[in-house]
C-alpha cells in the first residue's frame, strides 16, 4: 500500500520536474530568439549615449552630445528630410495606384486577368538592382533628369506589389453583398467606397502603407540608381560608414528605432479601433 503510494508520488514528482525543466528550456529558447532579434538594437541605442567615441564595453559615461551634434549636422538633416519626403510620396503614390488596382482585380473579370495579376505581382520578386537599372535606362530614354521624384517613381513601382497583394487578399474575403447592400440603400459608388469598402479594408491599407513607408525609407539599391545629387538617409549613412561607425550614426539609428516603434504602436492602435469601432 505504502510502496504503491510512493511510486505514484515519485512518478508525479518526476513529471513535474521534467515539466519544470522543459519550462526553463522554453524560456531560454524564447530569450535567445528575442536576444537574437533585439540585442543589436539595444547595443545601438546604448552606444548612442556613450560618452567616448570608441565602441567598446564598458561604456565610459552617458551623454547627449551625439544627439546635439546630429541636430547640427546639416547634411544628415537634409538626408533625413529627403528620406521622409521620398517615403511619404512613394507610399501615397503606391496606395493611390495600388488600392484601385486591387479593386479592379477583385471585381472586374476581363480576358487575361490572371496574367495581369501575375504581372503586377512580379516586381516583388525582382531584385532592387534590376528595378533600379531598368528604370534608370527608361528615364534616360525619356530624357528625364534624375531627382528625388524619379526615386519616388522607382519606389512606388517596386512597392506596388506589396499594396496590391495585401489589399487584394482582404477584398477577396469581403462579401460582395456589403457593397451591393450599400448601393441598394441608395449610396452611389463613391459613397459606397468611402463608407463601406474602405472601412472594411482599412487595416490592410494601413498595414500595406506602413510596410511601404518603412521599405521605402531604408531602400538603397533603387535609390542608388535613380537619385540625382540628393542623398537619402540610408545612402548618407552608408557613405559615412566608410569612415567607420560613429556614435552619431548610432544616434540616428536610435531615432529611427523610436520612430518605427511609434509607427507600429500607432498602427496597432488604429487596427484595434478598426475592429471594434462603429
Amino acid at each position: 500500500m505504502n510502496t504503491a503510494k510512493q511510486t505514484v508520488d515519485d512518478a508525479l514528482n518526476r513529471t513535474s520536474s521534467t515539466k519544470l525543466l522543459s519550462n526553463i528550456t522554453w524560456r531560454v529558447v524564447i530569450g535567445a530568439i528575442l536576444a537574437f532579434l533585439y540585442l543589436p538594437i539595444v547595443v545601438l541605442v546604448l552606444f548612442s549615449f556613450n560618452s567616448s567615441r570608441s565602441l567598446s564595453w564598458p561604456m565610459t559615461g552617458v551623454t547627449l552630445d551625439w544627439y546635439r551634434k546630429l541636430a547640427a549636422n546639416e547634411q544628415l538633416l537634409e538626408a533625413l528630410w529627403n528620406s521622409l519626403y521620398v517615403a511619404t510620396c512613394a507610399t501615397t503614390l503606391t496606395l493611390l495606384i495600388g488600392v484601385p488596382a486591387a479593386m479592379a482585380l477583385d471585381r472586374l473579370s476581363f480576358p487575361g486577368k490572371g496574367i495581369f495579376r501575375k504581372l503586377v505581382l512580379l516586381p516583388i520578386a525582382l531584385p532592387g538592382i534590376i528595378t533600379g537599372i531598368s528604370m534608370l535606362s527608361m528615364f534616360k530614354l525619356f530624357g528625364l533628369p534624375l531627382s528625388l521624384e524619379t526615386v519616388i517613381i522607382g519606389h512606388a513601382t517596386a512597392l506596388l506589389a506589396v499594396v496590391v497583394t495585401q489589399v487584394f487578399a482582404r477584398l477577396q474575403r469581403l462579401p460582395k453583398s456589403y457593397e451591393e447592400a450599400s448601393l441598394d440603400l441608395g449610396a452611389g459608388p463613391l459613397h459606397t467606397f468611402l463608407f463601406v469598402t474602405l472601412p472594411n479594408i482599412r487595416s490592410a491599407v494601413i498595414g500595406a502603407g506602413l510596410l511601404s513607408f518603412t521599405l521605402s525609407f531604408d531602400e538603397i539599391p533603387v535609390t542608388f540608381f535613380l537619385t540625382g545629387r540628393d542623398n537619402t538617409l540610408p545612402m548618407y549613412i552608408w557613405s559615412t560608414m566608410r569612415r567607420g561607425i560613429t556614435p552619431e550614426i548610432n544616434a540616428v539609428g536610435a531615432l529611427i528605432v523610436l520612430a518605427s516603434a511609434i509607427l507600429i504602436v500607432t498602427s496597432v492602435l488604429l487596427l484595434r479601433e478598426n475592429s471594434n469601432s462603429r
Partner: peptide
Amino acid sequence: VNVVFQDYALFPHMS
C-alpha cells in the same frame, strides 16, 4: 426597391 440579402450583409463596422 430594397433587398434583404441571404447573408443579411449587415455592415460589420457600424452599429
